[in-house]
Design a protein around this nucleic acid. Structure first.
Lengths: 341, 341
DNA sequence: TTGACATGAAAAACCGTTTTAGCTAATGTG
DNA sequence: CACATTAGCTAAAACGGTTTTTCATGTCAA
């Protein structure tokens, strides 16, 4: 049983391949009677005909493939939803996603990009695992590209990132709303946009509530459980212990849980904790569940592909867009009013 | 700058397109002088020529694309390494992976498979997030297919799964080796191969060490932190408290940590814990780090694609293989000798 | 000298579509 | 009734490569 092609349909329907093509794809200027069209479609359906995308792509100069190049999204749990969002958006518009993950190897990534181009992808989503500022690879010059969770100095390319400042502001506001006025911030010590953005949001939220910013309440560490534990240990054993901790991410928040545990502090009775990421695996697994700000990975992935397809489909009248998404608060059980002394 | 095609190379090298093709792809029967070949290759390199895979695929009936259909691998952290392994293996053999994740929606999955086939994928890796027994979708009949982390009743298709029994045996053996003879098993209550395989391994390891199997030491729960916590609570508050717990997975092990914490038991001094999965995000984040059995996801993904490509390349003389991979022990800090009383 | 054979390169066919350019018959127009 | 228009369809030419076939030489042995 060889694949059924357009010729087979033509033969079965007793018409020419041209007519079959016209009957199946309505297109401006294809004059064909309704009866013939219906007949051909029925025959095609009957034979289970499905067009060969390689062939039509060759003719149309359109592969309906879009490439997703990432550093290590596929293999880490931090941003997997971006892939799902991207894939859904692509699929809805009749495209397939080709995903490649170079694991951070720049040389490999270059080769991967050129392989994608050999396969005539219509465009490329260039994604990073976490929000960062990057330079666009030269290979991508002239190729429709959208940056996902990254921004470039090059303004001619669209990009989408989370609103770090607003996320932090909302997180701290929710602690203030619960009654806290003594709020520590466990920050990341890496020099990345999130570090600065979240610190800014923390400061702004304090300011708008009339709480004075106390540098002693801000401690940084490596953005993992260990770093969070050490930093939390630090700030919780200090002279003026905060009643709540805003943590750079859920992993550091998990570290804060551990520190609280070893200091005999019960969450949320003695200490409220809020994180960022909404990493299901951690936030839901902690006990009590971790209240945290969800990074809108799914929506960002979706938006990136949608924007890319728009740019591909009308290359002329689409301007590059720099998009920012809000981060919703996900409440679990780690925030409560402070103990009255 | 239009893409440079084989015609451009031919013109620049002052030869025919035929000669260029022959020069670039060594093939039996293509008679061409070494000098011409070298010359053409140099010119092609110089022009940055890269063949259009769509066009060559059309002619050769080979797309160098392989599809990966999964339930929710891309979006959960449990098996991401399978993708990486599959992708690496594909890339090494000059192929690209097209990954689709239906999120468990069977109807969507069907349509995804047919879309992949429209794109003329050379074969499909049908992957599940965790080891399960499945029926192969009818759409895949006649398409080269390999099952990843799944087995089918249909013996004509290759598959690869982890050796559940051996993994459990090794885990329990390592506890016995540390001196434990009173070992609890926190099992999953779902009726899946891992549940039965791991229980069997647990029993076998006990038997070979002359330890009598005590059904009271086996407790099941939902395979998440909560389930693990409840089950551990149960068995640790029972009449004869075990000195070590073998947990169905790392999440349940995390629950065991929480139970131990609330019972005032220190790990590993008062209680040794071993898990399965080597879920970095949890195992390394726990304090102390969790000793666990790593599921060989990367290797399984790699093997699946390798086998698939073998079957594609020589469709005749390759027999379907049912492969099982061992699970290595990853030692961290949660196992120690039991306290002497 | 000539037929057999080896070699290198060009020409042509092909893959499965879509698009362009015609062709024929029916319809409309003056 | 002659002539343009148009509806409905189809043959043929792309698309960008690879593979097969053909052709022009050169070499060698009989």
């Amino acid at each position: 049983m060889g694949r059924v092609g357009i010729r087979d349909v033509a033969k079965a329907a007793q018409v020419s391949v041209t007519t079959v093509s016209h009957a199946l794809n309505d297109r401006r200027g294809s004059r064909i009677s309704a009866a013939t069209k219906e007949h051909v479609r029925a025959v095609a359906e009957d034979l289970g005909y499905a067009p060969n995308r390689l062939a039509s792509g060759l003719r149309n100069n359109r592969s309906y493939l879009i490439g997703l190049v990432s550093d290590e999204i596929a293999t880490t749990p931090f941003a997997g939803d971006m892939i799902l969002g991207a894939q859904d958006a692509a699929y809805e518009r009749g495209c397939l996603l080709m995903m490649l993950d170079a694991g951070g190897d720049g040389e490999l990534e270059k080769r991967q990009v050129s392989t994608l181009l050999q396969h005539q992808v219509d465009g490329i989503v260039y994604a990073r695992m976490y929000h960062q500022r990057i330079g666009l690879p030269v290979e991508l010059a002239g190729v429709p590209t959208v940056l996902l969770d990254a921004v470039s100095a090059d303004e001619k390319v669209s990009s989408v990132i989370p609103d770090e400042v607003e996320a932090a502001r909302l997180a701290v506001r929710s602690l203030v709303a619960a009654g806290h006025r003594h709020i520590g911030f466990i920050n990341n010590l890496d020099d990345i946009p999130a570090t600065h953005g979240r610190l800014l949001g923390y400061q702004e939220a304090l300011k708008e509530s009339g709480i004075e910013f106390d540098p002693a309440l801000v401690v940084a560490g490596v953005p993992e459980t260990n770093g969070g534990r050490a930093a939390a240990m630090d700030v919780l054993s200090g002279p003026s212990r905060p009643t709540a901790l805003f943590c750079f991410n859920d992993q550091m928040a998990m570290g804060a849980y551990q520190a609280a545990g070893s200091l005999g502090l019960e969450i949320p009775r003695d200490l409220s904790v809020i994180g960022i990421d909404n990493l299901e695996l951690i936030a839901a697994a902690l006990w009590p569940g971790l209240t945290t700000m969800a990074l809108p990975h799914y929506d960002m992935g979706r938006w990136a592909v949608k924007q890319l397809l728009n740019e591909i489909e009308k290359p002329d009248d689409v301007e590059p867009v720099q998009m920012m998404f809000d981060c919703p608060l996900v409440q679990r059980g780690s925030v409560a009013p402070p103990l009255q002394i």
